[in-house]
Every structure is written in structure tokens, then in C-alpha cells.
Design a protein around this nucleic acid. Structure first.
Lengths: 196, 196
DNA sequence: GTCTATATTGCGATAGAC
DNA sequence: GTCTATCGCAATATAGAC
């Protein structure tokens, strides 16, 4: 908790509040009061509430450029898939509110979706499709696989674990200590399936 | 488009608008105007905007009781898993706005989450865990599987396909004609994995 | 840069006529 | 059951003092 300037403090506070209640669920009064500044600061630094929301969104999705490093790694397709899963888990742990923006923009898109969110998610899916196609071409993955469906299974399992937290936390342990075990199980199921 | 009473018309209109923009994203003025009634009808029938939202939510999640039929079927665990996937796809196709409420309540819960949404989703996950445990006990599924992680993979892949639509529709075909193929691929990957 | 005060608009709810 | 009119309040944005 270093001393921050008002601009950073506002972004920090807004990230939490927008994540918890959405763009329309929070007023600039509440935002300013929670950040300990006056409401006029929001217009001053961000040009209004939507500008602040847009800045928060850009910061949250900036990390998606990292998919290019996974893409360009000189590694076997299966290792890249492991990279993707580890990176996804790490992303959600480091940015506890990321998934809120991710899903809230996917289901109730604001006018910033097409500019910030769609390119980020779309690019990740495209890179993953490339990786699966590469794996099939190198005969490491099965021939009959549909790359698109394979990728959606993979992205689904990696993200849904975090999405489901609120509905299952009363009977499923979601603590970070179990992450390594989770990653191993996910890779195991994804590569070998569930049948004996 | 039958002739409907105002109550049903309001539920129908509100389902679309709340799904697209969330509880706070829509005003009762807009709701009433889109439904072609006066705003006082919302108080009259539902006791206010939140009452209307609650009715919409209850209607959307009523279908979740159907998981008990899958649970009680006299069928092999693998067949029950296929049932679950088919039922999930059907559910999202029949109720195009269901996933909006599902994810928006999971990420920005309203005060109706714990009463309506959590019990529905939680129960489905619990039944699926039972099914996987049964499959392991009957030696149809692999011994080392963690039932919880297995279920989260399954629920993730079944739901994420629909969740991702908005970000991938420009390069992935999400039309219902492909659903049967999708279900087959998903079952195939989930049972056999991706490796050769 | 930061504040207070205020302009203006839109909100949810409801009283009361029909 | 349904409407119009209106109340009281909270919203965003900004002008202007410091």
C-alpha cells in the first residue's frame, strides 16, 4: 500500500467496484468517496465515468499480449498448451477481477467490448487453434480432432474453474494451494480422457 | 407472437433487456416503453423493478430441476454425462438469454443470487460429481480421476462454447446446425483425450 | 490539482383519475 | 387494470474558487 497519486488510486478503486457491480452498478459519487477524492477528479483525469471504465478495461486486458510469447516459443504443441493453462491460472490469480470484466463484457458488452475485449480474447483463441493444428500436423495429437472444438474445450476448462467459484465455494476448495494439482488434473484429462 | 397479457409481455421484454444490459443497465421507463405498457404496471404486477428481475430469474432457472431426471435415470455414468451435455446445449438453444443471467449473476451477483442461482448451479455440479464417482466405482472411468476437477472440465467445456460466442463469432461458426457435431467432438475429447 | 456548489437530467415509485 | 402526472431523490457533469 504505497502512497499513490489520485489517478492510480481511482483506477485501483474503480477496478474493484466495477468488477463487483458492473459499469452501471456504481456511481461516480461512490467511486470518488471510496477512493477518497472528489467526484470532479473523475472528469479531470478520465473525462467521465466511461473514460475511467475504459482505462480499467485496458489495464486488465493488457496482459493478453503475452499470448504472443507462448505462440513464438520454440516448443512442442503440448508444451504450449501447458503454457496456456498455467498462464491462464496465473492471470486469474494475479488479477482477481479479470474474469469479472471478461465475462461481464462477453455477456453484457459495453461500447468498449469491440475495441478492447474482443481483440484480446479472439487473438488467444486463434493462437490456440494454430497450436492444435500444429499438433495434429506433427502427429502428436489425434488426426480426427476438430481444432476449433478442441480449443474451446481447453479454454472452457481453464476459465470455468474460476467462473464457477461463487456457486461452488461452499463445497469445492478453490484455494491457490491446490492450483498445481488442478493444472496436472486438467492436463491429464485433456490429453488422456476419462475412460479406462 | 400470440396476444399476451401485460404480465407476460413484461416478463418477455424484461428477459431480453435485463440479459443484454443487466439489472442496473435498464430503467423501468425503457422497460415499460419497450413492452408497450405504462411504468406503473411494473409496480402493479411485480412490486417494482427488482421484483420483475426476480421473476425473470426464477423463470430462467426453473429448468434446472431437470437435472434430477438425469440423476435418476437408470443408465451408465457415461450415458448420463452425454445426457448432461445434450441437455446443456438444448437449454442454451431454447433459452438464448439463460447464459447472460448465469454469468452475470456469477460475476456481479445481485441479492437474488443466493436464493435462485446458486442452488440451481450448485445442485447440477453436485449431481455431476456423483455421476463421475459412480463411473470410477464401476471401473468405467479411470481410477486416478479427481471427480471435482473432472466435473469442472465437463461443465466448463459445455458452457464456454456459448459464453465465447460474442468474441469468436467473426471466425467460428456457432450455428445450431453444427450442435450435433459439436456434442460428438466434445464427448470424444472428454472420453479419449487429444493424444494419439 | 483539487475542492465545493450547482445545473440538469433521469431515476424509481406512487397517488389518483378513469 | 391501466393510465397520466408528479414527487423526491440520485445520477453525471462542470463552473468557478482556491
Amino acid at each position: 500500500m504505497d502512497k499513490k497519486d489520485y489517478r492510480s488510486t481511482l483506477i485501483e478503486t474503480a477496478t474493484r467496484l466495477f468488477a463487483e457491480r458492473g459499469l452501471h452498478g456504481v456511481s461516480i459519487r461512490e467511486l470518488a468517496s471510496a477512493a477518497g477524492v472528489s467526484i470532479s477528479m473523475i472528469s479531470y483525469y478520465f473525462g467521465g465515468k466511461e473514460g475511467l471504465y475504459s482505462s480499467v478495461l485496458q489495464e486488465q486486458f493488457a496482459c493478453y499480449v503475452h499470448i504472443e510469447e507462448i505462440r513464438n516459443r520454440d516448443a512442442a504443441p503440448l508444451n504450449k498448451i501447458e503454457d496456456y493453462i498455467r498462464w491462464t491460472v496465473r492471470r486469474h490469480r494475479n488479477q482477481p477481477y479479470l474474469l469479472r470484466f471478461y465475462t461481464s463484457e462477453l455477456t453484457n458488452p459495453t461500447r468498449f467490448f469491440s475495441e478492447i475485449v474482443q481483440p484480446a480474447i479472439g487473438r488467444v483463441i486463434q493462437v490456440l487453434i494454430e497450436i492444435v493444428e500444429e499438433g495434429i500436423a506433427q502427429r502428436q495429437f489425434r488426426k480426427g480432432l476438430n481444432p476449433v472444438d478442441t480449443v474451446l474445450v481447453m479454454a472452457g476448462m481453464a476459465n470455468y474453474y474460476f467462473l464457477s467459484t461463487l456457486a461452488t465455494e461452499s463445497f469445492i476448495n478453490h484455494s491457490p494451494e491446490r492450483d498445481e494439482e488442478l493444472i496436472q488434473h486438467y492436463l491429464d484429462i485433456f490429453t488422456k480422457g476419462i475412460l479406462v
